[in-house]
Amino acid sequence: MATAMFRSSIRSALRGGASRVTPASKRTFASHASVEEEAREAAKWEKITYVAIITSTILAVVNLAKGHSHSEEPPAYPYLHIRNKEFPWGPDGLFESKHH
């Protein structure tokens, strides 16, 4: 969906530029449709946004209620917790919490 949205916006962008040069293309210039049409599109995307926000909220509540699992410490493989020198701010990485 996002890819399609991205593509269509790029397409309308290029068309937008082009329509300024070749007036013949203005009929096909989707985002310069009539004001009423734009208002309808705006209302449609407003509804889509609300549906998406509600879905995201439900998913967020479900995920936060679940909590996160604590996995046990893996063996000290040499490729884990690599330290060649200290960080400029100290011994621990930025998102490193030691209470898993």
């Binding site: 397409r11 290029l14 068309r15 530029g17 082009a18 040069v21 070749t22 293309s25």
Partner: peptide, 9 residues
């Protein structure tokens, strides 16, 4: 699309 784009150069 590309044809139109090129028409700007």
């Amino acid at each position: 699309m590309w044809r139109r784009l090129s028409s700007q150069f």
